[in-house]
Write a protein that binds this DNA or RNA. Structure first.
Lengths: 213, 213
DNA sequence: GGAGCAATACCACAAAAGGGGTATTTTCAA
DNA sequence: TTGAAAATACCCCTTTTGTGGTATTGCTCC
């Protein structure tokens, strides 16, 4: 039986029960210590300051906040930190975005305990561990420069509009809320649809739900 | 410290990691034994036959299948069985539907460990335990007979239409697929919206996603 | 045998969404 | 400091939704 270096882990996930359960599971591994758990994105930075974990396990689905964005921020503030995403979304696009953001791992909540432990140990020893369900591990590195490259790269404003659309607001209501002209909102809408390769609210909401709102 | 009667529990949840973690957490309680875990609705009935648990903890979100429907079936086959739902959806409507279906508990994955344990012990001793986040625990028992009572009771055809709408089909495409007139589809749409108290595709899809498609 | 519901279908009108453009200002990095 | 994106805004026109009705046919339950 190999012995592993001791690792302190922080959990960030607003599903308390999952958080608790995961914590208990990890405590069965002598080398893995859960040094804390927080439930909101706001609590993340202070907690890392206080607890100085080596690894953060991060849900993508944090109360309106995108876990990947949070991960990016964490890396900015704590360059030595290892960050692994935990998500229920079996989405190559999401995985790719996480990789792009410089995160160190992507694991499905659907994963087995073995995968989790292997993933953690790979990531804390300086490796990366990205895994999905049945589809290939990574995308081919081609198709740069054309329309495809621009897809999925929503701007800040566009993401904002996506969120409001998904809350069921009409273009008019969104315009009122953001202090914009209805036409501007419609333009954003068009651009979003183009980038995502869709053409209906229905598609958009499905997309958004899979990304974690 | 009170002592509790010993209870055997079966987990049904296709999030393996959550399942595993929850299992480990429950094993810390001397009275609560996890006698098995399955990941698909199909495996549920055979597993209960084989393992004869007293309690089933059931996710609502089982690979396209509605956990509440599965729960209903389980109760039909095993009248003595206790069934508690575990879900991430803080939805009074869902809770009410679970209660209606004769299930014994409804707990958020967002719940604390304490709530989970209390819930389990309440349910196995013959009680029921329904809880949401911050809103009141149960609905007042009035408003029967009027429009409200009809809400949320979608007919078979209506559910079919909901599914197609959520796949992003237009009324016209749905009509083609089901061999109906567009007007009929629109009528279904109107009735669905009325029953759910909504008035937009966006709302409908949000609703559907929360129900587990 | 009639009340109630599910499923079907039609009409008409108003309100949004979707698709095609073009154009101005701001911002930011090379 | 120049050039590319991002954010803003307008026009026009088509299609789809959403809302308000009405109506017929079966089926089932009491």
């Amino acid at each position: 039986m190999a012995t592993y270096p001791s690792v302190r882990i922080l959990l960030i996930d607003d599903h308390r029960l999952f958080n608790d359960a995961l914590k208990t599971l990890l405590t069965t591994q002598p080398d893995l210590t859960v040094c804390g758990q927080v439930f909101t994105a706001n609590d993340a930075l202070p907690a890392i300051h206080r607890l100085t974990p080596q690894l953060v396990l991060l849900d993508v689905n944090l109360q309106g906040v995108n876990g990947i964005d949070l991960g990016r921020q964490l890396l900015l503030h704590f360059p030595g930190l290892r960050v692994m995403l935990l998500t229920m979304y079996n989405q190559p696009k999401l995985l790719e975005e996480a990789r792009q953001a410089g995160l160190h791992g992507y694991l499905l909540k659907d994963a087995t305990t073995d995968q989790l432990l292997t993933g953690i140990r790979t990531v804390v020893t300086g490796g990366t561990y990205f895994s999905l369900n049945e589809f290939g591990t990574s995308l081919p590195d081609d198709h740069f420069g054309d329309d495809f490259a621009r897809r999925l790269n929503l701007t800040f404003r566009e993401v904002e509009v996506v969120q409001l659309i998904c809350q069921g607001l009409s273009s008019e209501q969104i315009a009122a809320q953001l202090n914009l002209s209805v036409d501007t909102v419609k333009t954003h809408r068009k651009n979003i649809y183009f980038k995502l390769g869709i053409n209906k609210v229905a598609d958009l909401i499905q997309f958004a739900v899979k990304q974690g709102i």
